[in-house]
Design a protein around this nucleic acid. Sequence first.
DNA 1: TTCAAACTACGAAACTTTTCGTTGACACTA
DNA 2: TAGTGTCAACGAAAAGTTTCGTAGTTTGAA
Lengths: 127, 127
Amino acid sequence: MKKKLPKPTDSEVALLRVLWQRGPRTVREVWEEASRTQQIGYTTVLKILQIMLAKGLVERDETDRTHVYRAALAQEETQRQLIGHLLDRVFAGSAGKLVMQALSVKKASREELVQIRKLLDEIEEEK
Amino acid sequence: MKKKLPKPTDSEVALLRVLWQRGPRTVREVWEEASRTQQIGYTTVLKILQIMLAKGLVERDETDRTHVYRAALAQEETQRQLIGHLLDRVFAGSAGKLVMQALSVKKASREELVQIRKLLDEIEEEK
DNA sequence: TTCAAACTACGAAACTTTTCGTTGACACTA
DNA sequence: TAGTGTCAACGAAAAGTTTCGTAGTTTGAA
C-alpha cells in the first residue's frame, strides 16, 4: 500500500528538482547544483535533505560514508500531487478552469499544443 | 504600479474562497461558512483575516463596528499567481506539461473541453 | 441603567520552516 | 602520525503559521 507523502515545501521542491534532473546525488552535488540558482549554505541543503528523509520524500543510500540521496517519487507524481492540491483548493475541482488559466499565464509551444489536442481527443473518445 | 502580494497559505486560501464566492463578508459570516467544511474557531478566522489584511491580501471596511472584509485580488488573479508559481518551480516553465498533467489528474467536462479547444485555436493563430 | 451578547485586538503557545554554526568522525596526505 | 579537508549529525535561532484564550469596548434589551 502506498502511503501518502506530505506536500513538499518550496525549498524542498528546489532540491527535489536537482534529484529529478540529475538523478541520485550526494549532498555536495545537490548543493553545488542548487547554488547555481540560489544562495544557500551546504549545511542548509544537508538539513533539508535530512528533513525530507524523515518525511519520506527522499531516500538515501548509506553504503558509503558520503550518502547518496534520491527522490522517493518521480517528478510526474509530485506534479500531479501538487496540481491535485491546487485543483481542490483554488479551482473547486474544475480542471478546465485550471487548464485555461495555465494557458493564459504562459503559452505552450507549438509541439505541446499538438500533444494537448491529441490528449483532448482521447478524453473525448472515452466519454 | 501594482505591488506583488505574497502567496497565500492554504488556510488563507480557505477563507479567501468564502470571500470570492460570497462577496464581502464579516468575520462571523466567513466563520460560519468556513465552519461548514472545517472545524475552526471564530477568533482563528478573525486572526487569519487580520494577518491577510496586514499582508494586503484582503481589505476591509471599518465604517461599522462590525468590519467587512473583501479579497484584494479576484479569484482569477490569485489562480494565475499560484499557477505561475507552480509552473516556475515544478514544471520548469512548461505550460504544456502542466496542462497535460492537469487533464490526467481529473478530466474536464465536455463543455470545458470545447472551450479549451477554442483557446488552443486562438493561441495557434497568434503564433 | 445594568447585563449579556457581539466584536476587535492582543498576546502567546505550539508547530513548522528556513538557515547555519559547531562538533566529532573519518580519510587522505605530507 | 599529525594536520587538513570532508562529511553527517545536532542543536538552535529566527521567522512564519496556526490556533485560541482573554480582555476590553460597544450595543441592544430588559
